[in-house]
């Protein structure tokens, strides 16, 4: 009974974490593990860049129960740039992204081996403060998920929870009210997220009344408000229409001037448009190629990546 239950939850969790992988992911995964020699053969050359890496990942393996979702992935992510993660459904790119801020801890059956370092500091070790970690590595989800609060409260949520800003009855009584600071913060973040013009007159409205694209930009503003170093985005535009998508893409490029952005996308054109470097995951949770975007798209080293990019599979 309990055994049956476990497998069931594992399946479910896998489905929720990764894109609905389905048949392609499963079957192709088996092929790659079968041809492990090929994997070594077309392993990507190390991507060199100037400066210290913001995030460095080494030999990262992730298992959901028995199933391996990522196979010893290693990559270094430079700061203040956009890194795109592309690949077919079920290739583990979302899993990978969620390892970077340890959101996978939420899934009971997930097991993570290997190392992820933020500015040289290991994230997978005892004593890591998840609060501090997620404060420095923010995340934007696939479908917009604003809180059912006012727009203002959505943006100021993080700083309030972290005690950076206190408003309300008690702080007012104690004379520590930060209302002005909050207003500044809300305006700054909404401007950064290119949403200020649209919502400045209705900051007290429920955020769930915004359109999908606006909601997603609000989520980005909310993420910016805690002043992270890194912003992880999990297919941030997949639930949006083309116009909203274009706005989000512009925004991502702007954000890269100040933040390290890692974005998972399904859409190769999007990756080509917005990213500085691209990592290609293929089924089975394998990082097949990682390099400058132009180079990956125009002259990939791996035959499989070329096939994937030219649309032969995936």
């Amino acid at each position: 009974m309990s055994e049956a239950n476990t497998t069931q939850t594992e399946d479910a969790s896998q489905r929720t974490t990764d894109d609905a992988g389905g048949a392609i992911g499963g079957s192709a995964g088996r092929t790659t593990t079968g041809e492990s020699e090929e994997r070594i053969e077309d392993h990507w050359r190390n991507y060199e860049f100037a400066g210290e890496p913001k995030l460095s990942v080494e030999d990262l393996d992730v298992y959901y129960g028995e199933e391996q979702a990522l196979q010893s992935v290693s990559m270094e992510i430079p700061e203040e740039s956009v890194t795109a993660l592309i690949g077919p459904s079920g290739c583990g790119k979302s899993t990978y992204l969620r390892c970077l801020n340890r959101m996978n801890d939420r899934i009971k059956s997930a097991r993570v081996d290997g190392s992820v370092q933020l500015e040289g500091e290991e994230l997978y070790q005892d004593g890591v403060d998840l609060v501090e970690l997620r404060r420095r590595i923010g995340m934007v989800f696939q479908s917009p998920n604003p809180f059912p609060k006012s727009i203002r409260d959505n943006v100021s949520y993080g700083p309030r929870k972290h005690g950076d800003i206190s408003t309300g009855l008690l702080p007012k009584l104690l004379g520590r009210d930060d209302t002005e600071q909050r207003e500044e913060l809300v305006e700054r973040c909404l401007r950064q997220a290119a949403l200020w013009e649209e919502v400045q007159d209705r900051l007290d409205d429920n955020a769930l009344g915004l359109s999908g694209g606006q909601q997603q930009r609000l989520c980005i503003a909310r993420c910016l408000a805690v002043d992270p170093d890194v912003i992880l985005m999990d297919e941030p535009a997949s639930a949006l229409d083309p116009i909203a998508t274009a706005k989000i893409e512009d925004l991502i490029e702007e954000l890269a001037e100040e933040y390290t952005v890692v974005v998972v996308t399904h859409n190769m054109q999007q990756a080509a448009r917005i990213s500085d470097q691209t990592a290609v995951f293929l089924t089975g949770g394998e990082l097949v190629e990682y390099g400058e975007t132009d180079q990956v798209f125009e002259d990939p080293e791996s035959q499989r990546v070329e096939d994937y990019i030219s649309g032969k599979f995936g």
């Binding site: 500091e121 994230l123 070790q125 004593g127 970690l133 420095r136």
Partner: peptide
């Protein structure tokens, strides 16, 4: 480890 780090 430095106090500003993610490790508590």
């Amino acid at each position: 480890i430095d106090d500003t780090g993610v490790v508590a």
